[in-house]
Simulated scan of single mutants.
Amino acid sequence: MVDVNVAGSKFNGSTTEYFETLGIFVALVIVGISVALFVRSRIDKRRRAGSRLLVQRLDGRPLVYVPYAECALSVPDVLSTAQAHGYALTPNPAVLRYEFARGAPQTAFTGNPRAAYVAQMLDGRPL
């Protein structure tokens, strides 16, 4: 092996030191991946639970009002859940609630005075 002795460095370039460094690096990568997978599973679990609660509220009534505080889902998740169960979604920021209409067209935002606001919430379109 080559003797690499930089001023103040104790690394000799031996195979043992190389594998120790490599082992530490691999362990850090494995810990990082594990933490990322754990966090992702927790987020997915919370989103599924929020979606289940929303589906319970969307029980077939023609109009359903859900306060923002009771629905911890993102607007695209709320929209997709509503559309999957036959509801059209209209966020109402004046009273801080989502309004769901059963059997309404799935493009409920067209013609709605809050269409620009909803489009901006969903995909960042300018107001």
Rank of each mutant, 00 (worst) to 15 (best):
L73N: 03
V95D: 14
G124I: 03
F38D: 11
P91C: 03
G13Q: 01
R97N: 07
T21S: 12
V6T: 12
A115W: 06
F100I: 02
E17P: 04
A115S: 15
V75C: 05
T21Q: 14
L79R: 09
R47G: 00
G124N: 05
T15G: 06
L122R: 01
V95K: 14
A84Q: 11
T110P: 05
H85G: 05
G32K: 07
E17Q: 11
D59K: 12
R46L: 08
D59W: 04
A84Y: 06
G8P: 03
N92K: 09
P62Y: 01
E17R: 05
G50E: 08
V35H: 01
R125F: 02
F19R: 11
I43F: 04
Y98N: 03
L22K: 15
G124Y: 01
A88D: 03
L79C: 01
Q120M: 11
Y117T: 02
S34R: 07
Y87G: 03
D44H: 08
F11R: 10
F11D: 06
V35C: 01
V39K: 13
A36N: 13
S80W: 01
H85V: 04
T110Q: 15
R114G: 12
G50D: 04
V4Y: 02
R97I: 02
V55D: 07
L58A: 06
E99P: 05
Q120Y: 12
L53R: 09
L89W: 01
A84L: 04
L122V: 00
Y117H: 09
A94G: 06
L28S: 11
A72M: 09
P113I: 02
L53I: 10
N92E: 13
S80C: 06
G60V: 00
S41P: 01
D44M: 06
V66N: 05
R42E: 12
I24W: 10
V6E: 12
L122D: 00
S9I: 05
V75G: 02
G50M: 04
L96I: 03
R47Y: 07
T16W: 04
H85Q: 11
A101G: 07
T16H: 08
F19M: 11
L96T: 10
P67V: 02
V35G: 00
R97H: 09
D123W: 14
S51R: 15
K10D: 15
P113D: 02
I43M: 07
N12V: 10
G13A: 07
V39M: 08
D3V: 11
A108G: 15
R52D: 14
R42Y: 06
S74R: 15
E17G: 09
G8F: 03
E17S: 09
V31Y: 06
L53V: 12
Y98E: 00
F38M: 10
K10E: 15
